[in-house]
């Protein structure tokens, strides 16, 4: 007997939740308990009175599972709204990364030149290192990090993506 695997889709979910203790554990735990995947997760307070947070989750799974994830999230009492940005249509996905590169000579010059091409900002520098701040679609960050790997990459920190619908309306 072999375990069967099914076709997967990638979806970006924007979730507004009550900013109460345990909510992140509830959501993350829901994914583990039901065998769903989390590719990235971001969360931050988005309200004036600190009542509401927005969580962005990138997940993948077969279409029926994505629909279940949506419904299961909506079942949680502190969840106000779940928007499947991938389902809703054109949307923007952005991610921020901090990338530390160490080196001297040509590598250092090349790293700075590539950072300029990728519109990465230098947010810290020593005579032997840079920290670049880069924002963009996840693929852009992937390719920037891949280039830096050859030029003395020390470490990478990524936020995971946040997403938003294009156009005038909110999700």
């Amino acid at each position: 007997m072999k375990i069967q695997h099914r076709e997967q889709e990638r979806h970006v979910l924007a979730i507004t939740v009550d900013n109460e203790s345990g909510i992140l554990a509830k959501i993350a735990g829901l994914f583990t308990a039901r065998g769903y995947n989390i590719d990235s997760l971001t969360v931050a307070d988005i309200s004036e009175n600190h009542n509401v947070s927005r969580i962005t989750i990138v997940t993948h799974g077969p279409p029926a599972v994505i629909d279940q994830i949506h419904a299961q999230l909506e079942r949680l009492v502190p969840v106000h709204k779940v928007s499947d940005l991938t389902e809703l249509g054109p949307h923007v996905e952005r991610e921020l990364a901090l990338v530390k590169v160490a080196g001297k000579g040509d590598n250092r010059v090349e790293a700075l030149r590539l950072a300029d091409v990728y519109r990465a900002k230098v947010v810290d520098s020593t005579t032997e290192s840079f920290i670049f701040e880069i924002t963009g679609a996840p693929e852009k960050i992937d390719s920037f990090v891949a280039l830096m790997r050859e030029l003395g990459l020390v470490e990478v920190g990524r936020t995971g993506i946040v997403g938003m619908m294009r156009g005038v309306n909110g999700a």
């Binding site: 345990g22 829901l30 308990a33």
Partner: peptide
């Protein structure tokens, strides 16, 4: 208790 019962309750509180 809140952690243990998180996924077998409709909701829980501390």
């Amino acid at each position: 208790t809140v952690g243990i019962t998180r996924h077998c309750t409709k909701h829980n509180y501390l």
